[in-house]
């Protein structure tokens, strides 16, 4: 399973592509691709967003589902989804309803 992530051009904020084709600040809003064809569709949308200068550093991320929500396999992506583990007062984890990374 994969989801598509990027950083927003304006401020570098980590974002994920949702089923509504919009970029969201929380990983929970990401659309999960269950097969290669679905992942390819995500990537195509990502390429268009990159070309339109909405986002940069577009990449697919391997996830599993935990309580129905995407949970990245790599710590790197879990930290991107939450914020620095050493400053839980900063980043997404400091906002309501975002889980910590580690």
């Amino acid at each position: 399973m994969q989801i598509l992530t990027a950083n927003r051009l304006l401020d570098g904020e980590a974002v994920w592509l949702g089923p509504d084709r919009l970029w969201h600040e929380t990983i929970a809003a990401a659309e999960v691709a269950h097969d290669a064809a679905a992942a390819a569709r995500l990537e195509e949308t990502g390429r268009a967003a990159l070309a339109a200068s909405h986002v940069v550093d577009v990449a697919l991320v391997d996830v599993e589902l935990v309580d129905g929500r995407p949970w990245p396999k790599r710590l790197r992506e879990r930290i991107r989804a939450a914020g620095p583990t050493t400053r839980t007062d900063l980043g997404k984890q400091a906002r309501p309803a975002t889980a910590r990374a580690a």
């Binding site: 051009l9 940069v56 550093d57």
Partner: peptide, 25 residues
């Protein structure tokens, strides 16, 4: 920011001025 130059064009310019893109920002 206006989309007039691509990231590929901009990246070397921002790096020359110390601007990196990291995990969160």
């Amino acid at each position: 920011l206006a989309g007039e130059i691509t990231e590929e064009q901009f990246k070397p310019l921002r790096l020359m001025n110390g601007v990196y893109l990291q995990l969160h920002a």
